[in-house]
């Protein structure tokens, strides 16, 4: 009997999606760190091109201006993409500082780790609104 009970108590495979188990906030910070890094890498050619054109000859600078003003169906697509990349950079920045602190064993307990994960989202989104607003 005791053996049967022990067998029954063994952990089962949990389908986290079916049971609606949420990834904890630090997990979201982590996956967003990877996604934002990948997005920034993929957009590097565009960013370097814009950087170079903003500092180039008058012809290149006018190409920079028209690229920045590019819009489709009334949506300024390049500017919106850059706003998204600004958020990606700021998230990657804030989450990176959090990871450096965790490396130094600062805030590794559950409560401070969750609080700092929320702080990463709050600070990066606020900075995106402020810097995006200033530069739009």
């Amino acid at each position: 009997m005791a053996q049967a009970a022990a067998v029954k108590a063994r952990p089962k495979y949990l389908n986290v999606f079916l049971l609606g188990i949420m990834l904890p906030v630090p997990g979201f910070v982590s996956i967003f760190h990877r996604v934002s890094g990948a997005g920034l890498f993929l957009c590097m050619p565009l960013l370097i091109w814009l950087f170079g054109a903003s500092l180039g000859t008058p012809e290149q600078f006018s190409a920079y201006r028209s690229a920045m003003e590019f819009s489709l169906l009334g949506l300024p697509l390049v500017k919106l993409l850059l706003l998204g990349l600004l958020w990606a950079y700021l998230h990657h920045f804030c989450a990176g500082i959090r990871f450096l602190l965790l490396d130094m064993h600062i805030g590794v307990d559950r409560a401070p780790a969750r609080a700092s994960a929320w702080a990463v989202f709050a600070v990066s989104l606020t900075l995106t609104v402020v810097l995006g607003g200033l530069t739009w």
């Binding site: 590097m44 050619p45 370097i48 950087f51 170079g52 500092l55 180039g56």
Partner: peptide
Amino acid sequence: LALVGYAGWVAQILWRL
């Protein structure tokens, strides 16, 4: 290869200024 190329590209942007 992409990253090495980007490094050359950035150097060229900066030092033609």
